[in-house]
Design a binder for these strands. Structure first.
Length: 802
RNA sequence: GCGGGUAUGGCGGAAUCGGAAGACGCGCCGGAUUUAGGAUCCGGUGGGAAACCGUACAGGUUCGACCCCUGUUACCCGCACCA
């Protein structure tokens, strides 16, 4: 009855590995299927059940595809650069290389215990110099094509990690890694010009199969807005102040301007500013605030009027005051705005506080009470008066600005250029040399990889420089261009670098001439199906789409989008319904589950617990339910006899094959498993099945529970591996019943059921329904107003009583 | 505030198109077996004595609504003074 998972699971894992049955063949004639899962960061804590869920979806689909005759590539690797390992080194003195190798070993053995059908011959490790050679190579290609630049900038600095963070890594003013408050610091920053690809990244979304909420998140992240730039002349100077607005139609209502505290116009015109001390003091005050305080905590508007600076509205000619206020950000648009209090909430609030005039230019609201942001007829707006739609008014205003030579249509993005350096040791060294004569010089391609030098002390400097800066042999070098003394860049790349192109390396992981052979790229790309977590659908996916599009533009990859289809699994919550975390003590260790119940049970339960794309809490007793199911499957050979089909089960088998086949494609694993459970119940109710039927059953179950089903397959004398056997086909005709049960309603309420032949003609069906004893009784004396028939489903009599 | 999502028995969740709400599993109840417990097997299980009532709440459309429309609430995720 019961099977011994501790024996059969390692046995089959061994055999699969010996025979290398999950190896993908490059450029074979079979149709290809490239399934990609997000490769793990090999942390010291080992894997948790969330990893298993993340891989199980495409694991099942890959296994089904193999049985369907596809040449499947389902690879795995390790994204191993990153702060946790370096922090571990700082704490323990254990070199990140050593810790990483150990963790990868641990992850590998855990993944193998689950029986995943990965192609282990293609494993990659982003910290392997043979891998990051090509990460550096792509960086240099970007450098060569002008997509890399360096700038002094206020950066987010984590005083605890002693590291510069990108905006993405410091959301909410907290360090993404240690959750300390971040501070602003001026630094030299390497940037990748991802904004140059903003439109391509947006436009590409129209041609890929991502669910709408994922596309929407990427669209929001890129944050494109259209509007206009306009120059406001500074009174008494030749200078002007350029603003960006999405609402040029409201320009006649601009009664003041606001500039960001860091705006350079202050320095430029400080001689004219009468209250310079006050302005400086305000600027200082703002600089003290973190991004978090500025954006999150401060609800009330603050600001200072700049005495002595006034600007002229280019359309209305009106002279208006200029304010400095921190509700305008230097990092978006031009760092200066025209304020239209009548039709903008923030400007309204500011105007109310500072007693600035509010001029209505769009009818429809009551601006004495609140700003009006809707549409309406233009008023008080010169040539715009009378226009009734925003679209028209915007176009007219832009036309006028262009005519006058004081503005133009413009586009802005929320997405900023990608800050691409970290003051850290455990990352890819940035392959650039600083030469006093030649400036920034790239390391020649033939000198890659630029290898991380060994170190033994991982304590970071107070100044926040990388450890590499303390290694003279690394820093001091000759300029590749002029041969003179030069210094190496000591910053490394962020953790996102290695994962931005890893799916390409799987195609040719051992190639040392190119990152991947063009024929192999052509055969395998694009990734057919990419699954991962929701937390990666913006940053990681946008970064890697950016790299891919760049490689496409320079002719290195054959398609412009890397991922044809993307899905995202939901979290596994703790038994208490909370997110699993060590501190809450609600973490489930997959090893424990495998020890007690086996890998097949673990896999089955994780896919059965609920909608794959939604979060669901762990339940140990439900795990036992899956164990019971597999025990009953293990006992099926005892009641299997004869060949061919069992007439009572034939239709049920065809229906189940159909349901399981279709559900797997939609990642509806829970209902696929439920269908197999139902069939199993039917089989036991019937008391027996044929050997042929049993073979079909274990084929359907094989992608979910491969060890047990291989074992049964062997018992039955099946040829070769079940994992490579042909997926069962169903006969559509046999999934259709000849007799159907039809519900009979009176006034929409269920009053009985009758059996009808399939596709019974309307008149006949209604006749039979009326003739039903129970229905006839209830219809007696009532007037039938209407008769509704939904073929093979329902009959509804609408009646008036009496 | 903006964008996206979710809400169904004691629990996880099912329900092509608007057509019998609660598939499947867990839990629970009863029975068999057992010295006992566990395991296993059989039966039952939304509420209600019943008429009926039930898919977050209030309306609407329809012969018929978990499903469509209007409004509301709660929770989750992402972004957030983006001009």
């Amino acid at each position: 009855m019961k099977y011994n998972h501790k024996e059969i699971e390692p046995k089959w894992q061994r055999r699969w590995e010996e025979r290398q049955i999950f190896r993908a063949r490059d450029c074979s004639d079979k149709p290809k299927f490239y399934a990609l899962v997000e490769f793990p960061y090999p942390s010291g804590a080992g894997m948790h059940v969330g990893h298993i869920k993340a891989y199980s979806g495409l694991e099942v689909i890959s296994r089904k595809r193999r049985m369907q005759g596809y040449n499947v590539l389902f690879p795995i690797g390790f994204d191993a650069f990153g702060l946790p390992t370096e922090n571990y080194a700082i704490r323990t003195g254990i070199h990140p290389r050593v810790a990483t190798d150990e963790n990868i070993k641990k992850f590998t053995s855990q993944l193998k215990r689950v029986g995943f059908s990965f192609d282990w011959s293609r494993t990659i490790d982003t910290t392997d110099e043979k891998y990051y050679k090509w990460t550096q190579w792509i960086f240099l290609k970007m450098f060569e094509h002008g997509l890399v630049f360096r700038d002094k900038a206020l950066v987010n600095y984590c005083p605890s990690c002693k590291v510069v963070l990108s905006n993405e890594d410091s959301q909410g003013g907290k360090c993404d890694i240690c959750h300390s408050n971040i501070v602003q610091k001026s630094k030299d920053v390497w940037y990748l010009r991802i904004t140059e690809y903003a439109d391509k990244l947006l436009e590409g979304l129209e041609r890929v199969d991502y669910p709408p909420h994922i596309k929407q998140q990427q669209i929001n992240w890129i944050g494109k807005s259209t509007g206009a730039f306009a120059d406001f002349k500074l009174v008494g100077t030749d200078d002007s102040l350029r603003i960006y607005t999405t609402r040029p139609d409201t320009m006649f209502g601009a009664t003041f301007m606001v500039i960001a505290p860091e705006h350079p116009i202050i320095e430029k015109h400080k001689d004219r500013i009468k209250n310079l001390d006050e302005v400086y003091a305000y600027r200082e005050e703002c600089a003290q605030k973190t991004e978090f305080e500025r954006t999150q905590l401060v609800k009330e508007k603050t600001g200072v009027r700049i005495e002595g600076l006034e600007a002229q509205n280019p359309l209305s000619g009106r002279i208006i005051p200029v304010y400095i206020a921190d509700y305008v950000m230097m990092g978006y648009g031009t760092g200066a705005i025209m304020a239209v209090p009548a039709h903008d909430e923030r400007d309204y609030e500011f105007a109310k506080k500072f007693g600035i005039e509010i001029i209505e230019v769009i009818k429809g609201g009551d601006i004495s009470k609140a700003p009006y942001t809707g549409e309406g007829e233009m008023v008080n707006s010169g040539f715009l008066n009378g226009i009734k739609t925003q679209k028209e008014a915007v176009a007219a205003a832009i036309r006028k600005l262009e005519e006058l030579g004081v503005g133009c249509a413009g586009v802005q993005y929320k997405m900023k250029d990608w800050a691409f350096n970290r003051q850290r040791y455990w990352g890819e060294p940035i392959p650039i040399v600083h030469c006093p004569k030649c400036g920034m010089v790239p390391v020649p391609y033939d000198q890659l990889p630029l290898v991380l030098p060994p170190v033994d002390n991982f304590e970071p400097d107070e100044g926040g420089e990388s450890l590499l800066a303390k290694i003279p042999e690394f820093v001091n070098c000759k300029c590749p261009r002029c041969g003179g003394d030069a210094k190496r860049e000591t910053d490394t790349m962020p953790q996102w670098a290695g994962s931005s192109w890893y799916y390409l390396r799987y195609l040719d992981p051992h190639n040392d001439r190119v990152f991947a052979d063009p024929d192999k790229l052509k055969y395998w790309l694009p990734v057919d199906w990419y699954n991962g977590g929701m937390e990666h659908v913006t940053r990681h996916m946008i970064y890697s789409r950016f790299w891919h599009k760049f490689l496409y533009d320079i002719g290195e990859v054959p398609c412009d989008e890397p991922y044809a289809k993307r899905t995202a699994q939901g979290l596994i919550l703790g038994p208490d319904g909370e997110k699993m975390s060590k501190s809450k003590g609600n973490v489930v260790d997959p090893n424990d589950v495998i020890d007690e119940y086996g890998a097949d049970v673990l896999r089955l339960y994780i896919l059965f617990m609920g909608d794959y794309e939604k979060a669901a809490p762990w339940s140990e007793s439900s795990v036992r339910g899956c164990k019971r199911f597999l025990d009953k499957v293990a006992a099926l050979p005892e009641i299997a006899k004869g060949q061919g089909v069992t007439s009572a089960l034939e239709s049920k088998f065809h229906k189940t094959i159909k349901k399981v086949s279709l559900d797997i494609e939609e990642m509806k694993f829970n209902t696929a498993i439920a269908a197999m459970m139902t069939l199993l119940n039917d089989i036991y109710e019937h008391g027996s099945l044929t050997v042929d039927e049993l073979k079909i059953f274990i084929k359907l179950l094989c992608p979910f529970a491969p060890h047990l089903t291989e074992e049964i397959w062997e018992q039955l004398g099946g040829k070769g591996f079940l994992s490579l056997a042909a997926w069962p086909e169903y006969d559509e005709a046999k999934t259709i019943d000849e007799q159907v049960e039809v519900a009979v309603q009176i006034n929409g309420k269920l009053r009985g059921t009758i059996m009808l032949p399939l596709n019974c003609p309307r008149d006949e069906a209604l006749e039979l329904a009326r003739a039903d004893e129970k229905i006839a009784q209830m219809l007696e004396g009532a007037e039938i107003i209407k008769e509704i028939l939904v073929p093979n489903r329902i009959i509804n009599f609408v009646v008036k009583s009496k």
